[in-house]
Structures are given as structure tokens and as C-alpha cells.
Write a protein that binds this DNA or RNA. Sequence first.
DNA 1: ATAATAGTGTCTATTAGACAATATCCT
DNA 2: AGGATATTGTCTAATAGACACTATTAT
Lengths: 228, 228
Amino acid sequence: MNARDYPRPSVSVDLVVLTIVDAQLRVLLVKRKIPPFKGSWALPGGFVRVGEGDDQGEDLDAAARRELQEETGLGPDRVFLEQLFTFGKAGRDPRMRVITVAYYALVRPDLAPLVRAGGDVSDAEWVEVSALEKMELAFDHRDIAQAALERVRGKLDYSDIAFELVPVTFTIPELRHVYAIVAGREVDPGNFRRRFNRMMENGVLEKAPGKRITVSKPATVYRFKRAS
Amino acid sequence: MNARDYPRPSVSVDLVVLTIVDAQLRVLLVKRKIPPFKGSWALPGGFVRVGEGDDQGEDLDAAARRELQEETGLGPDRVFLEQLFTFGKAGRDPRMRVITVAYYALVRPDLAPLVRAGGDVSDAEWVEVSALEKMELAFDHRDIAQAALERVRGKLDYSDIAFELVPVTFTIPELRHVYAIVAGREVDPGNFRRRFNRMMENGVLEKAPGKRITVSKPATVYRFKRAS
DNA sequence: ATAATAGTGTCTATTAGACAATATCCT
DNA sequence: AGGATATTGTCTAATAGACACTATTAT
């Protein structure tokens, strides 16, 4: 018996798009305008395009980027995107067997306002992640979002993902706020500065011209060092 | 247009089954007896069973456990199994679009000899992971195996997975060998013992009766504390 | 007795965390 | 001048790593 003859599942990509706006970690939710769960909030996503014959269709990562573009208008540049986990429990979609490859994306806060609803979406909104627990999302999307949060919080301290949630130029206190907001607790300014300085010594960052004007003492502005 | 009408991919699970035998970290490879890549070494795996109509078929985890059982004879007990990553590049299977959800499994060394070939498999062998680089495996299975190794090595120091590669009762030096073999470098006996003692204080382990007889001073035997 | 390995102890370097103190800028 | 925040400095605790040393068993 040939594999071609087995029934096949549909495969989708779903996106947990995160950003920080108004000192809150937020996830992008869209309102579904087609069944099932019509009218419910859901993660942006859609089916992976699978070709027939010679053309086998698009890669998974490409499908994730395409959905991000289509449903939110966020272009492929400057958006961090990484595969999260694959959710494939039987029955998670009432219509038919759907296996979804979940991704999470990190959007710089200056790009967040540019998001607009598109595709099969009637509305898009940045929702505080703390509100997720009490919300009803379509399918198992709440579980997916929670998994993304765990991943991001877990990677915060041993990876560079915090830099994806800050504008291209940023101050040390701004970066510290990202850590505080994502981790959900205060971060000591002095201790954080030490950690930051150790990163600096590795040469991935450099000072940018100018100072950030705030209500008090302006802070030094940094940016990523250009690959030269 | 309904999602039902799009062409769908086949979805498989592939397993990176690891164990330690003869002081080597080894991965289980099977010889394919059907095309494509007939006669090549490959990871054990197979297609996820997807139902039609009301029955949506088996969960992804269940598919992984079933394939493990079918192709190797390893029962579901005492085998650690965790989803790794989903590989879905177009063209990775020459026949048709196949998206594979990769899992990795850790097998206690005392169970490793019980493995026997089954299913669509004519032979099964525990291959040293160091030999993988130079081997040609079917599909993108070498990439999948490498990803599993990275995951296991990365989790070694902040999780309990090392205990999955040791018999039910074990000595501190035996556990230390697991760390050394997986990490690929010597581990200081004294320093390791300190770390181990900290684990002990958390109460997940207890002394087991008897001593392990070796060529010199016998070592104390430990085991996991029964959930009581 | 000796070899071998289990097991203990010591020293140093690194890092996180709590927290005090100072510097600089806006109003 | 005063408030706020950036920035620097100090102290303690936890941990990893290198390495010397002692204990116990088989031969």
C-alpha cells in the first residue's frame, strides 16, 4: 500500500506574535470572519500551501512569513520568527484533522502600530498576555500562546531575543524594561547594567550618537553593530 | 473556497532514538526495505494515521509511540519521548510533500539490546553518533539526528534527562559517565559529586540496597524515589 | 602492599542579587 | 534647589572548575 493512498491531514501554521506596547507584553489576536469559531479571537495563521506534482509548495518557514504578511501587514524584515512546537491532537479542529506548526514572532514596538487586519481577518488587536488566561480563543490557541510565552521567558536570560523587542537604537534602561516586563518582575538597574556591559565586551553592540531625553538624566543610546 | 479543497501534505513522525552502549552515545538507525532510499539507513518513523469523518485518527505523540513499538519493539514504558522539531522543507521527500514531526527518545542502556527490527525495516543498528557526520542517511535524517543531539546536549545540564540514560539503579560514577559521554568531555568526579548531592537534597533520589562491585572500591547505588 | 577508583576538602573565578552612594539632567 | 533617573560601587551567596587529598576495596 502506497503512502499516497492514506488519508492526509491539513497542515497549518499559527503565529504567536508578541510585542511590547504601553509597558505590557502583548500578543496579536485576530477576529475570525469565517467558521469555525467565526467571531472568536484567534492567533493569525493559515494553511500551508502544498503543491501537486513537481511543485511541492512552500516551506514551513515561508508559510509562516507569508501569513504574517497577509494577516498583519508585517513584512519579513526585522521580525524575529522561530518555530515553536507542533500541535496535532486529534479533534483540535472540529471540521477535520488539522496539524498546526506553531511559530512565535517578536515585533519591535515601533513597528507594532503598523499592524493592520488583512486576509480572512476582520479585526486585529494587541492583547495583554495577562488577559489570556480568562479569554476563550478559537481551537487550542490559548495553549499555543502559553507555550510561546514559556519559550520566550525561558530564552530571555540565555539568548538575544530581548533585543528583538526594542527599537533599533535603545538605552540600557529601555532594554531593562523589556526584561522586567517579559519576566514579570523588577530588575535591579545596577545588576542589569553589569550584565549588559559583559555583552558589550563581546562587541555585538556599540554606542549610537545622541542621548535619550527623558524626565531626568538622559541615557546613553546603543545600537547593534553593523556587520561590516 | 474551503480548506478541505486544498491539496494536503502527508505527515510523518521520525524518531531519534538514543542510548549509551559500550561507552558511546548511539542512535538507532534502520535499513529501509521499500523505496525511496531503499537499502539506505534512516531514522525509524512512519506516517501519522489520520482518520476520515468523525474519527480524526491518532495524536502525534501516540503515532510516535506506536512507531517506536512497531519498528523497534520498545514498549511505551521507561522510554522518554519528546517532540523535537518539525521538518517540512519542500522537496525533502522526492515522492511528494511530506512534513515530518521529529521526536527524540532516550532508552536506558539495559533495554537497548532488546531492540529488534520490525515493520518496514530489515535491520536495525545502534550507530555511534560520531559516525553520523560521514554517513549518508535517507531524506534529511542526518539533519534531524543532529538537531536531536544539540537538544539533548543543551538540556543535559538543566534537566533530568541524564537519568533516562542510566539503569533504574545507578551509582554516581555511572551517572557521571553519562554526562561525560553525552557532553563529549571529561567530568571532574569531585565537582560532579557536589552537583549530585544538591539533587539528592531535593529528595528525588534515594539510596538503593547493595553496592556496585567494580575492579576497586564499590560505589553506593541510588535509584529514583518511588512516588508514594 | 599496591593499584584503582570512590569519596572529601580546598581554593579561585564567575555570576546573581541586594542595596548604598554618586552623577547628571530636567523642571 | 529639588526630583528623578542614570550610573557606579560594595557586599554576600551560589556555583563551576581545577586540583590535592583520604578511604576503601580487589588483587
